[in-house]
Design a protein around this nucleic acid. Structure first.
Lengths: 147, 147
DNA sequence: CTCCAAATTTGGTGTCTATCTAAATTTTTC
DNA sequence: GAAAAATTTAGATAGACACCAAATTTGGAG
C-alpha cells in the first residue's frame, strides 16, 4: 500500500497478474498462455520474473499463486483499470468501449495519478465494468454508507 | 488527416516530432539532443527513422524540417496532448501538473479515442497548456463562433 | 508400477526501441 | 586552410516480448 508507484511491472506482466488475481487460487501456465494467445514458454518466462519481484509464488510444473504483496498489487491494478474506464465512460465512450480502451491506457497511470482521480471522482463505488474497492485506496476506507 | 491512428510513431519519436513542430522551420540535432538530454547520435538515429516514415526531411549535417504530413501529424500530437491535459485538469490536477502527467500518458490515446473525448468535451478551444486547434479535428472545423 | 502423452520449463534466437561510446566525416570559424 | 564544433556512422548494450525446439516433469492408462 505504501510504496506502490504503479510502474513496478511492465504492462504485460501486470496483465498477467491481474488475470491470476481474477482466476483466484492456483493458476496454470497453459491457462494464462491460452487466455493471452501466446506460447507457454513466453508465460513461463514472465512468471519467473513476476515471482522474482515477489508478487507470485511459482511452483514449477504446478502453477502460480499470488503472494500477499501480489494480491495487494493486483487489487490496485483492478481499481486503476476501473477508475480509468469510468473516466473514459464520462467522456463519450460506451461502457464496453470504455473498458476496452482502458486496458490500452491504464498502464500509463501512476498510483499517485490514480489516487488523485479517485478522490476527484468522490471515490466512486461502481465503474462500468465492476465495483471499485477502496480498501487499499489512497486515503483509507471509502466504503460508502452501508448502515 | 484520414489515416492517423495515433500510434504511427513510438512515443519518443512522437516527442521529437512535437518538439520540432514547436521550434518551427529547421531544427538542429544538437538542439533536440540537449532538450531531451540524450546523446546526439541517439537523435540522429531517431531522426533517420522519422524521416523514413515521411514526417520530416532530414538534410544530413544541416538539420530537419517537417514535411506537410509531419506538420499534420504534429498538430494532432499537440491537440491530443492538450485534450489529455484538459481531462486531467478536470480530475483534480493543477494545470502544470496536468500538463506534466499528460506527457506521460498521451501516447496511449489513439486518434479515435482522442476525437471521441474531443467531441464529448464540446471541442474546447483552450486547455491548461495552450489553445486547441481543431482544423484537422475529428469532424471538421470547430473554430468557435467568431462573428 | 511402468510408460507414454500432456504440460511445463530451458535454452537459444529474433525483433524493436532506446541508449551510449568511439571513431569518422562534414561544416564552420578564425 | 586548419583547428574546432557539429553531426553521423558503427558497434554494443539493455530491457521487453515473442517464438521454436529440446529437455524435463507430471499424471493417467493399463
Amino acid at each position: 500500500m505504501q510504496g506502490i508507484t504503479g510502474h513496478e511491472l511492465s504492462s504485460k506482466k501486470a496483465e498477467y497478474l491481474k488475470y491470476i488475481h481474477m482466476q483466484g487460487d492456483v493458476v496454470k501456465t497453459t491457462e494464462i498462455a491460452a487466455h493471452f494467445s501466446v506460447a507457454p514458454s513466453t508465460v513461463t518466462k514472465a512468471l519467473t520474473e513476476i515471482a522474482k519481484a515477489g508478487y507470485i509464488e511459482h511452483t514449477p510444473y504446478h502453477g502460480v499463486r499470488l503472494t500477499p504483496l501480489g494480491t495487494e498489487y493486483a487489487r490496485f491494478l483492478v481499481r486503476r483499470h476501473r477508475l480509468v474506464a469510468l473516466v473514459l465512460s464520462r467522456h463519450g465512450l460506451e461502457p464496453e468501449e470504455a473498458c476496452r480502451e482502458a486496458k490500452k491506457i491504464e498502464q500509463c497511470f501512476s498510483k499517485d495519478l490514480t489516487d488523485r482521480m479517485c478522490t476527484s471522482l468522490g471515490h466512486p463505488m461502481m465503474s462500468v465494468c465492476g465495483e471499485i474497492e477502496h480498501d487499499a485506496c489512497c486515503c483509507g476506507s471509502h466504503g460508502g454508507y452501508r448502515g
